[in-house]
Each structure stands twice: as structure tokens, then as C-alpha cells.
Amino acid sequence: MSQPIVKLKNLNKWFGDLHVLRDISLEVDPSEVVVFIGASGSGKSTLLRCINFLEEAQKGEIWINGKEINPYRENLNKVRKKIGMVFQHFNLFPHMTVMQNVIEGPVQVTGTPRKTAREEGMELLEQVGLEDKADEYPEMLSGGQKQRVAIARALAMKPELMLFDEPTSALDPELVGEVLNVMKDLAKKGMTMAVVTHEMGFAREVAERVFYMDEGKIIETGTPGAIFDSPQHPRTKQFLSQIL
């Protein structure tokens, strides 16, 4: 029987007095792609960041691969290295070339020999269509290219789960497609993915489930078709009418 990759049970998170996540419970199965939608400030980023412990939830359980993670007892670096994360603003390392960005994790964290890391890095750059940019610095790349490098950098750690936090919302419209294509590709290869995005086309094509978040709660869950075409909750309806 396969375990869920991520299981959250009654997760709660406060920033000071602000209750940002309220009793979030969900599971993501291996090879599943889930999408989170919701208004700005509804807690989507915080939720993703709690899953890889960039933020600490004060209450509730986080299970990764069948194991409950206690942030005080567990080596969080070990947990994080199996969870890739892609950020809205790429966060590439500007003082390193594309290839150096990609091999930094394997070489420093896993101790992969540089040569092996480079070979694997080159394959990943081919996968995201940037093999000819290996020796460029990030500042020379377009936003879409930067984000594809960021995806390759995360994949270099051979993660079991990839988190995407609005990976295309900082991009010029004409560059969104190239990033989504890489992500679709990844989904088809069986990567488990949790994605915050308002790209409906992407969600319809690859997501098994969509979660609608509102004020820190998941108030509606369903297949992309169910959520986008016949939302049940009035808040979901209202939100979708605004972004469409």
C-alpha cells in the first residue's frame, strides 16, 4: 500500500495574533498533482512553506512519506532536501552560473562528485531546454529561463515532492507557457507536485485535485472540472468570477 507523500492533520499557524492557517488537513499521494487557489493573503504560500519547514506551524501534524516530522527532533535539512521548492521570484544564486546553481545542492548537500553532478545537471538543463545556457549568469536570462533553471536546480536534489509557489506570476505573459510546459512535462513523468497557481489551463490538464483556500481554511476541494465549472461554495464562485 502506498503512503501519501504529504499528510497534514489539523495544521494551524499564527503570525503573532494573525491566524493564517486554520485546521488544514489534506493528503497528497505519490505522483499526484494538486493545485491551490485562493485570494491573496489566504495562506497559500504559508501552507507550502510549512510543508518544507521554512515556516513553523504551531499546531497540528505534518507527515512526510509516512513519518510524522517533529521539527525539534528531526534534522530538517534532511527533510528539506527531498522536497524541492520553486519560488515566485526564482531566487537563483546570482553569483553562480546556471550550472553552478544546479549542482550546488548535490555537491554541497549530498556530496555528489562535481563531475557526476555536472553530467546530471546537463541532463536536467536539457530537460528544461537550457543546455546552451549552462555557463551564463542568471542576470543574462529572461524570467522564463530563470524559472526553468530554478526548476532544474530543485530537481537536481532528486526530490520526492515539488512545491511551486506562483511560479509564473512574476513572468511576462509570453513567457508563462515555457515554464508551464516544463511543469506539465514533470507531472507526466510522475512527479508529486503541490502548486499554487491561478493558471486554470494548467490545473485542468495535470491536476487531480484543486483546493480553494479562504482566510486560512480549505473551504472547497474537487477535481479541476468540478471546482472551475460548478463551484459549490459562494466564496469560491465569487473568487472564480473575479479571476476569470
Binding site: K81, N91, E104, V109
Partner: peptide
């Protein structure tokens, strides 16, 4: 240096000192 740099590094599994 933006906090995004730290977050990107930590999310790769790098330690604080790395």
C-alpha cells in the same frame, strides 16, 4: 541580501552555515 536567497538555499537542504 534578500531572504529569498536563504530560503532557496535552505530548501535545497543546505545547513545554516553552508
Amino acid at each position: 541580501i534578500s531572504t529569498g536567497q536563504t530560503e532557496a538555499a535552505r530548501s535545497l537542504g543546505m545547513t545554516q552555515s553552508q
